[in-house]
């Protein structure tokens, strides 16, 4: 299947890999935001995940340990954010921005001496004969385990939010923290846990960049992926399957335009590069034109500070 010199199968397979970091980060941020906390520090958590995962993988020789290290690094950053915003009640926007700056600096410090080091390779899962199926084989059965984990997380998040009591509590806290508090739910605990989940996901996303996609460490290597993840959550109007769609569109357009160029097809590069952002703006305009904030699907308590006395 070749269209305009681009092999569609290779394109889809590579966009799945390219989108995995932002997908992981975005699904984590979705949970955090569903609990009513706006954490703008995704970029900082990702880059910390990238370096912590890299260090863990290099020293243990195992990429799996690396991803755990990355998740831990991201979680540690998220806990810092939770402490500042949930206990000390600091402003979430400012704290999130600070978290990003802090993460970029700290990761560069930890990363001293890791430039040019090669991490252990993450192998693709072996599905045996399934990989030989034409078209579906390369798309579905020739990836590493993190790609499948990211897809499982999307499905899991959707199921938990929709069908489980845990999901209901999380949404209640995010929609109206005073009511949830009055019902006896521990708003701060729920939010801290949600933030930790977000941090772990962002950290794994970062580790995916430093262990699989690039694979090496350089300072600031996430290069804005965290911000794209934040945009995708809004684009998806806080729905898990739309996060998947959004992440694949963002990742897909990036990969597509590079491949179109490599294939020698004359396309205006700038237009394709800005396409995902244009789509996000369009989606926001269309949705907000309908019925205001509720229609966008934003949790009603998003970004509002909770204190039991108020």
């Amino acid at each position: 299947m070749t269209i305009g010199g681009i092999d569609l199968v290779v394109l889809i397979a590579s966009l799945m890999v390219a989108s995995t970091p932002i997908l992981l980060a975005a699904i984590g941020e979705l949970i955090a935001e569903k609990s009513g906390v706006l954490n703008l520090g995704v970029e900082g958590m990702m880059i910390m995940g990238a370096i912590c995962g890299f260090v863990a993988a290099v020293h243990s020789g195992s990429p799996v340990v690396g991803f755990f290290g990355g998740a831990l690094g991201g979680t540690a950053m998220a806990l810092l954010f939770a402490f500042l915003t949930q206990i000390l009640l600091s402003n979430q926007v400012a704290t999130g921005l600070a978290l990003t700056l802090f993460g970029l600096g700290l990761s560069a410090l930890i990363g001293q001496g890791y430039n040019g080091v090669r991490p252990p390779q993450t192998d693709n899962l072996n599905f045996g004969p399934l990989t030989q199926i034409p078209v579906l084989g390369p798309i579905l059965f020739q990836h590493d385990w993190v790609v499948y984990l990211s897809l499982a997380l999307v499905a899991g998040t959707w199921a938990v939010l929709r069908y489980s009591r845990v999901g209901l509590i999380l949404r209640a806290v995010g929609e109206n923290h005073d009511a949830a508090h009055a019902l006896g739910y521990r708003v701060r605990t729920v939010r801290t846990l949600a933030l930790m989940f977000g941090g772990a996901c962002a950290g794994m996303g970062g580790a995916y960049i430093s262990l699989v996609r690039v694979p090496q460490w350089s300072d600031g290597m996430t290069a804005g992926a965290g911000w794209i993840a934040l945009a995708i959550v809004v684009f998806a109007s806080w729905r898990p399957w739309r996060v998947l769609l959004g992440a694949y569109i963002f990742g897909g357009v990036t990969v597509l335009q590079l491949r179109l160029q490599a294939a020698g097809i004359a396309i205006p590069v700038q237009i394709l590069s800005m396409a995902p952002y244009l789509i996000t703006i369009l989606v926001l305009v269309i949705m907000s034109a309908r019925r205001g904030r509720a229609a966008i699907g934003a949790p009603a308590s998003l970004g509002r500070i909770f204190h039991a006395s108020s």
Binding site: R213, T254, R259, A262, V269, S273
Partner: peptide
Amino acid sequence: VVWVYTWFDPAKEADAAQALINE
């Protein structure tokens, strides 16, 4: 030639390299 419109974005640079290699 592939234009990536950035001086520094390791992931994108890696994607561009991969796209070229596939070609």
